[in-house]
Design a protein around this nucleic acid. Structure first.
Lengths: 191, 191, 191, 191
DNA sequence: GATGAATGAGATTTCATTCAT
DNA sequence: GATGAATGAAATCTCATTCAT
């Protein structure tokens, strides 16, 4: 498993640096510091590393949510949730782009949805708790809303971190606007 | 320009059919009915056709919005707007996936934002009108909100049309949930 | 003939700049400021311009010899002759290299010898005059010697001008040594 | 190194047979009996084989001089030296033409001078010995004279072997004339 | 005569894959 | 299991040549 992880880490690095199309298996093995033939002992092709990369990233999201969403009230937790997505998008933006592109490219789209399931489930559970405690409008459908929220938060984060130069001024404004929008959209009751 | 358009149309078709990775320049020229060398008179590489494809798709969005968003009241217009995005995402789903993947792959991400500007501008203008007429909450910032809305609507549409089998049941539910969410989020006043 | 000369001049320039192999007909026509198809009205191929270039250069040598070899005594004339070759080699070194390479490459070697005939003839006549006047050893065979002398003088000039940095110190020494060698080799009588 | 030598040998053969321009890398690998891709493990282009070929030929000259210049007296050695150049020029005429053309074509002219250094050094040493033994004029400068002699002998040999039909009658005459010329030019003392 | 966009045959070049070590 | 030199099928790319304007 040692070599397998070396390959995954190296693949992330060179995919991000050179783009998927231009990355050659020889680039990955060079970066990983292993032999050319060794690659094929662990993966059958360049793109087949993609799901493994995706799993690594999803794990980071789940870990982030579990560790950093600590408050008790919905609004506080929502804010922390947005923070987790923004922080991770900032830190691993190229990697997320990469995954999206890589999965879209091949016929792995379905696979991606499966890999991403834990995130949606976390969000469903998050919404359910809030509905039960009466903190958000009871007409909200957690199944649909979870995906919408994830999409909304992630696309907002991507917008903000797309342009490196002007990050700082926009981030907090965007977050505020986003939180307010979600708060209203979900009919959040402040206590 | 004749040949250039032939190349773009052919590229869209073959990219969608075979995927970016598996598409060869020879496939594109065969589809376009032109000589192999002619391709290089217009584009230096397979991926450099991507921005041109993106422009074509953005034009389709703009045309759709201009032609199909005809109602007078904000809620009606919002519903038509969502319809345009859902319809186009349905019809050209592979192409959008393609563009996203293609632009992400190369270092054209910035370029994409530029090409997409007309869509954001349409949305800003749409929000401004509603703010002026008092139909939505005046605290809404059109610059930020336009991008959030586009991201939210598109990611919702993508969610729905990603799995072909079960489209029908989800579409109308998702749309309802989405519209309700936006309506609340923007503080829409019904008259 | 206007365009034909434009082509020859342009060909010399780009051949020297890029080398024969890397020069494309498109480079020549671009430099000449004419249309791609026009080239074929005057020459059937890239290499077929070579003899025309050679003729131009031989003419320069003949002109140089006729104009600058003015003294009466053999030794003076010999010195002036060497000067002509050195000066022209300095000025047009790349072009000479080019011609040699170009003619060697194709099956034009014989043609080259023909084009070069006027130079050998000038030298034969030069030697004959000196033999008749008793200025050089009568055992010298002008036919053989003319070619040897041309080869010797040219290769010496090439040696000197091959390295641009250190030209100045070597030129006069080489010339002196060369003149002395020829003088002795021909058994020149000083009066 | 095995494969590298196969490539060099094959390249010499095909270049001589077909000319540089008409030789394709596929011809070289076919002749060498190796895979198409293997070529690129050792050389980046067709012309980059040239310096390696030149080294092989220079080695042949050095070997010829070391083995066949065996006499003790200067005049005898000079004659043997001329014979070596004439013999090799005869045997490998196309290869020498090839090298000259090939090196001239690319920007390897300087490189050639470096590769040729051993030949000049042999000649310098040859002249020094003769100066020390008083066999040639002590005013001769070995550094300059070595290059002149090499140029003179080679250009004479080239003149003779350039026209295949009439070789035989000219060779011995040219050699005689050449030897006499050098003998006088160096002020050789006969004992 | 002059042009230059279009062509496609054929060259170069790449790189996933193999396999003897 | 690990390696990396060798491979060759298949891609990209070039560019001499044509021909309608």
């Amino acid at each position: 498993m040692e070599k397998r992880n070396q390959i995954i880490d190296a693949a992330i690095k060179v995919f991000v640096e050179k783009g998927i199309e231009k990355t050659k298996i020889s680039d990955i093995v060079k970066e990983a510091g292993i032999g050319q033939g060794t690659f094929y002992l662990y993966f059958p092709s360049k793109l087949s590393v993609m799901p493994a990369i995706a799993e690594v990233m999803v794990q980071k999201i789940i870990n982030g949510l579990n560790e950093q969403v600590t408050k008790k009230d919905f609004l506080g937790r929502l804010e922390q949730t947005v923070d987790v997505f923004f922080t991770l998008t900032d830190k691993y933006r190229e990697t997320f782009t990469l995954i999206y592109a890589g999965l879209a490219q091949t016929q792995h789209v379905r696979e991606w949805e499966m890999i991403y399931t834990p995130v949606y489930e976390w969000m469903i559970s998050f919404l359910n708790t809030a509905i039960e405690s009466g903190e958000i409008n009871s007409s909200v459908n957690p199944d649909y809303m979870s995906k919408m929220l994830v999409g909304l938060i992630e696309s907002s984060a991507e917008q903000v971190y797309l342009y490196e130069e002007q990050i700082s001024p926009n981030v907090s404004n965007t977050k505020k606007e986003l939180l307010l929008f979600i708060q209203r959209g979900l009919g959040v009751q402040s206590f």
